[in-house]
């Protein structure tokens, strides 16, 4: 079906970009948590972990948003990994009591749902 449609579908990928934005904010917050001595989690393994995972979520969402995936299978795999990243980071944020990061991951989850349910595939 790809390439056969006569209708020019929108390529906005709004859900993925919402994930990018939310995870970018999350990464900034997580970076702050890493270095903010006195917050109870600074320089802890958990703080570093969510900083890294936020960056990974952002990268994965960027790939989806920029339509860089080469195949549907790759996009599907990436979407699943993205979901795991969002959920994992959110759970970690919960146990770190990093509430802003948790909210950011909540927004990212909404973005992921939009991406899955409403966003067009670049291969359509």
């Amino acid at each position: 079906m790809s390439g056969t449609s006569d209708i020019s579908e929108p390529k906005t990928a709004g859900g993925a970009w919402l994930v990018v934005a939310a995870s970018a904010i999350g990464a900034v917050v997580a970076a702050f948590d890493v270095v903010n001595v006195g917050n109870g989690i600074a320089f802890s393994f958990g703080a570093w972990l969510v900083f890294a995972s936020s960056l990974l979520v952002m990268c994965a969402a960027l790939i989806l948003g920029l339509h860089l995936a080469l195949s549907g299978a790759a996009r599907g795999t990436l979407a699943v990994l993205l979901l795991l990243g969002i959920l994992g980071t959110g759970v970690a944020a919960y146990f770190l009591t990093a509430w802003i990061l948790l909210v950011a991951m909540g927004v990212a989850l909404v973005g992921w749902l939009i991406h899955v349910v409403a966003d067009p595939s670049p291969l359509d």
């Binding site: 802890s44 393994f45 970690a92 770190l96």
Partner: peptide
């Protein structure tokens, strides 16, 4: 309990 920054 807190370990690796995570609160239980």
């Amino acid at each position: 309990v807190q370990k690796y920054g995570f609160y239980m």
